[in-house]
């Protein structure tokens, strides 16, 4: 029965899938943080929900807003502005929580994390040719948080490196430090 399975044109199928992935990879969700436009690759985004009912977790650094109930799952919510070292986001009418799935490595399970954004704009296709490398400085954000600068209508959109910005290891290490500082 193995010969039958082999007969399938696997390589063709594989190439098709790859192409599709590439197309999706070049799609980005853009959103505003204090009037500045950012983008996140659409593949890591699970959903977008209205901001509300965030339970604060005590003794956490200010970039951890707290946790929300996402249909029975308890999901931490990160304030991106505070994570970038800027003043915390002010929650407004159009504030949203973007739910992001990140996978640190093949063995580890997926983590779901929410980030607060001021407003969600649209989904844009930015072809790889239109993406510049991140500037060494000047973006006022740690360079390793930026995966590239997308050119859209002659303006730059900062494409975030979600795995770095929301690195669970780094975040939890930071929470620990806050705790030590508080008690010293």
């Amino acid at each position: 029965m193995t010969n039958l399975v082999k007969a399938e044109p696997a390589s063709v199928k594989h190439a098709l899938v790859k192409q599709k992935v590439r197309e999706e990879e070049s799609q980005y969700l853009t959103f505003l943080l204090d009037k500045e436009m950012f983008a996140i690759g659409i593949l890591s985004i699970k959903e977008i929900i209205e901001y509300g009912q965030v339970t604060t977790v005590p003794m956490m650094p200010n970039f951890v807003r707290g946790v929300i109930n996402l249909r029975g799952q308890v999901v931490p919510v990160i304030d991106l502005q505070a994570r970038f070292g800027r003043p915390s986001s002010v929650v407004g009418k159009r504030s949203c929580v973007v739910i992001i799935e990140i996978q640190l490595s093949a063995e580890q399970e997926q983590h779901v994390i929410g980030v607060i954004v001021d407003s969600v704009s649209e989904v844009l296709a930015i072809p790889p040719a239109q993406i510049e490398r991140a500037p060494q400085f000047g973006a006022k954000i740690r360079p390793d948080f930026i995966s590239g600068m997308g050119k859209v209508d002659d303006k730059f959109v900062i494409i975030l490196n979600v795995d770095k910005v929301l690195s669970v290891d780094e975040l939890s290490a930071l929470t620990e430090r806050v705790d030590e500082e508080r008690h010293d």
């Binding site: 977790v57 946790v67 029975g72 799952q73 308890v74 931490p76 983590h111 669970v168 929470t175």
Partner: peptide, 16 residues
Amino acid sequence: KPLGPLFERVPGISGS
């Protein structure tokens, strides 16, 4: 409900 790895090291809180 477990709080996840982010809150693993928070003392005094065991879950949610």
